[in-house]
Design a protein around this nucleic acid. Structure first.
Length: 477
RNA sequence: UCCCUUGUAGCUCAGUUGGUUAGAGCAGUGGACUGUUAAUCCAAAGGUCGUAGGUUCAAGUCCUACCGGGGGAGCCA
């Protein structure tokens, strides 16, 4: 019977006859005996198969190359060698699939992440990407677990959206028109002849629909793919990414912050308890990676220390106004080190956020109550008339990991804001109905799933924490 | 989109102020080896130096453009 390696390695029982199927990581050995590291993806660890050369013959052994798929029947025994607890003494070997050694690109050696990015379909077979993907899964599972246990409902906001005024970024257009022959009428493109009868796009946010869910089911969350057609070429942006957006009726900004903080702590803690091997491997990987960096650029804490630190410490909570005051009093500002000048009303730049998070507080920081002019129309206008009930959660190395707010519940105030920003109210009539009928305070936030995975894995490029990244000029696989 | 940086063997890299036939490690191939741990040892093989122009007696090296990669910025999650 086939056993997964993860199961086998957690057993204490030797002498059992088992079948293992997996892919060859390395083969080594001498004249009489060969050792094959088999990995089946269930765990970081490979199982060493011990193969008597005489018993199986040179011809079979030659076919066992890095990347080949094997089925091995054998006896699980305590290992004679030092590198592992157990090994599988082979009794029968079936080659399920060959991997031509000349052309298989993944070698048992260190590859650069850049090279592996070009082989995204095969990089998943490396220790690093196996670990990342298992952690990613654990985080996704933890997201559902957290919300389910807190009484939230998983709410499926649409991927295809017809509202073209969400203002969260450039949108991808969807059409069924023959692009070489787009129908026109006197007003231009004849959208009424297209599939949906009007211009439609891929969603840039499920929030507005999420609010409808919250204003009926009480508390909901979305967790789905999100698309931005921005020409962003950075290590923190993807054209297709996964976003988590909880929305809670009757919550205010403070509740929202509490939810965000406990949520992040919960999901990180789940990986600490369930992904120890993978996290330890990623921690080691990071240490090796940073050896080539000057001391000043290395992280002060190891990966696991950072994760525990986030779980065990309260996030700093300051208002935008306090943050600006802090920046004005900071050394880099006084010495003129900031590229962008600081004054009340500006949108905080990366360098400002970095200073607060990485230099000043050295903790996750929640900044609230931003000037209304630099935030979205749906955020609740504060009593001062100048700021809104927004909150951004900033993480070291990542920047903004969460953006959220208490929503404007008052219809008239919301209409004024929409007019100021230039969003025609007819476009969002359905959304405004939440304020017309039984409006109530409510709040929510959006969390970029890949940014969370970045933080937990210690990776530095967002293209390495999603199986098949989509970025400008790149949609392979 | 802007700024910086980079492109040499399958991979990771070296290649001096421009100078003769471009090197190494790893992988792969052939062989050796008493249970290996990124096994080890020996041997042969592997290159249009990103592409196109230009400067020069001479270009991997200098200049220009384009293409690809990376980092930073903007936009954001």
């Amino acid at each position: 019977m086939r056993k997964r390696i993860k199961e086998l390695l957690s057993t204490v029982e030797t002498g059992a006859k088992v079948t293992v199927k997996g892919w060859v990581r390395t083969k080594r050995g001498s004249k009489n005996v060969a050792f094959v590291a088999l990995n089946d993806g269930s765990t970081l660890h490979s199982l060493q198969a011990v193969i008597e050369v005489e018993k199986f013959g040179e011809d079979l052994l030659k076919q066992i190359t890095t990347g080949a798929a094997l089925s091995v029947d054998g006896i699980l025994e305590a290992s004679q060698g030092g590198g592992q607890k157990f090994e599988l003494v082979a009794e029968e070997i079936t080659i399920l699939g060959l991997a031509d050694a000349d052309s298989y690109p993944i070698q048992p050696k260190k590859h650069s992440l850049e090279f592996l990015r070009e082989k995204a379909h095969l990089r998943l077979r490396t220790n690093t990407f196996g670990a990342i993907m298992r952690v990613r899964h654990q985080l996704a599972y933890a997201v559902h677990k957290f919300f389910h246990e807190q009484g939230f409902y998983y709410f499926h906001s649409p991927i295809i959206t017809g509202s073209d005024c969400e203002g969260a970024g450039e949108m991808f257009h969807i059409t069924n028109f023959d692009l070489n022959n787009i129908p026109h009428n006197e007003n231009g493109i004849a959208y009424e002849d297209d599939f949906f009868g009007k211009p439609v796009h891929l969603t840039v946010s499920g929030q507005l629909e999420g609010e409808l869910g919250a204003m009926s089911l009480g508390q909901v969350y979305t967790f789905g793919p999100t698309f931005r057609a921005e020409n962003s070429n950075t290590s923190r942006h993807l054209a297709e990414f996964w976003m988590i957006e909880p929305e809670v009726a009757f919550n205010d900004l403070e509740d929202n912050m509490n939810l965000a903080e406990s949520f992040i702590k919960f999901v990180i803690n789940e990986t600490l308890t369930n992904c120890q091997d993978d996290l330890l491997f990623l921690e080691e990987r990071e240490v090796n990676e940073q050896k080539s960096l000057p001391q000043a650029q290395r992280s002060e804490m190891s990966l696991l220390e950072r994760l525990r630190f986030v779980v065990e410490n309260d996030f700093i909570r300051i208002t935008y106004t306090e943050a600006v005051k802090e920046l004005l009093n900071s050394k880099p500002h006084k010495k003129g080190k900031f590229e962008y000048p600081v004054e009340w009303g500006i949108d905080l730049q990366s360098e400002h956020e970095r200073y607060l998070v990485e230099k000043k507080y050295k903790k996750p920081v929640i900044i609230t109550d931003y000037p209304k002019d630099i935030k979205a129309f749906y955020m609740k206008l504060n009593d001062d008339g100048k700021t809104v009930g927004a909150m951004d959660v900033l993480f070291p190395g990542i920047g903004e990991i969460i953006g959220g707010s208490e929503r404007e519940a008052n219809l008239d105030t919301l209409l004024v804001r929409m007019e100021e920003v230039g969003i025609p109210s007819e476009e969002l009539d359905w959304y405004l109905d939440t304020r017309r009928f039984g409006t109530a305070p409510h709040a929510g936030f959006g969390l970029g799933f890949e940014r969370l995975v970045l933080f937990v894995t210690g990776m530095t490029n967002i293209r390495d924490v999603i199986p098949f990244p989509r970025t400008p000029q790149n949609a392979n696989f």
